[in-house]
Design a protein around this nucleic acid. Sequence first.
DNA 1: GTTAGCATGTAAGGAGTTACATGATTTT
DNA 2: AAAATCATGTAACTCCTTACATGCTAAC
Lengths: 195, 195
Amino acid sequence: MLELAILGLLKERPMHGYQLSRELTQALGGFWRVSYGSLYPTLRRLERDGAIVSQPSDQPVAGRRRKNVYRITEDGESSFLALLQETPHDTQTEDTRFRVRLAFFRYLSPETRLRLLERRRASLEDRLTSISDSLRAAREKVDDYALALMQHGRDSTASDIAWLDGLIEAERGRARHGKVRRGGTRKRRAMSDAS
Amino acid sequence: MLELAILGLLKERPMHGYQLSRELTQALGGFWRVSYGSLYPTLRRLERDGAIVSQPSDQPVAGRRRKNVYRITEDGESSFLALLQETPHDTQTEDTRFRVRLAFFRYLSPETRLRLLERRRASLEDRLTSISDSLRAAREKVDDYALALMQHGRDSTASDIAWLDGLIEAERGRARHGKVRRGGTRKRRAMSDAS
DNA sequence: GTTAGCATGTAAGGAGTTACATGATTTT
DNA sequence: AAAATCATGTAACTCCTTACATGCTAAC
């Protein structure tokens, strides 16, 4: 997940490690504050594997500590797209993973976006079913805290699904008109995810 | 986190591994489906450390595959209470951790509950501030997806805080009256978290 | 001149997952 | 008799955190 996030940020512009950590926190809105103990080793690994290169932008001013400015390579661009479309089933980090993905959604084709949104929706729907089952099974024999936990879990999951439905509908609209309309909807041109 | 969950479930009644995995999924409402590859080794570790014992409830009927039924020990009870009060800062698993904790809240004293609820609230408040800052900084220079991500993050965090406020208020009420009122509010008697 | 922030890094370890392997029991 | 579910387990691995260590620069 960290590799994906790093590559995605470097795709926008070259940056050094410390900067990446701040931008990452900002892009994820505080849902994930990455530690330097994972950031720097990951940068080295990505460089070793040829996904990024560090520019010798050291010492711009005399005596100042080296700043390793990294830039993404062609290889990095393709592994970025590969990582962006992977959908592991890890229940623990699933939510954060989806957030990271969504932060870079603009790099995917409308079809892929729809596919990912619908997969996410199905996953939340499963969760909702699971919670509702638990609520039916557990009601009366469970204490107030566990009950509140389940009810709130149900409500926020339902609200997440409703929010996703909005995104899906917007995406469908874009897909319908996208084939006809000339020119991008914004400053960024339309994407296809073939590397 | 898994240790905490296992001990908490075994505190209610003895169970075998497979059963634990289902109850865990149920208690967490599908937010965490634990894998057997982590469950069974954790059970062995807990047994090795004396937190649980496996009852020789093997072969109740001839030829049937052994079911290792585990029971919590006195040592297990105290490490359960210790684990329940730990609050690591891991941003990745923070939300799930809090859910697990809340599922066993009845085992804590009202004071400890209030402390944990307020710590959680502060953490969500930080997140909300972080998101709001990002929104102010990023607006106009960020695409629709990233924007939607942040707005939804802000809204659901705000809603989580409002929900927590409800729990906190209820807890304060309980704390005020708890000192006067005779008898528990339910079938379970009042708890103190001293082991 | 000392505290806070910028900047990079390493070592050890925690906490889980995936994939595989086995076998019994119940349901269709 | 095949398929699904119950039940336990191991080996290899992924991915990230904590704690530590270093040193420069800006602000108070």
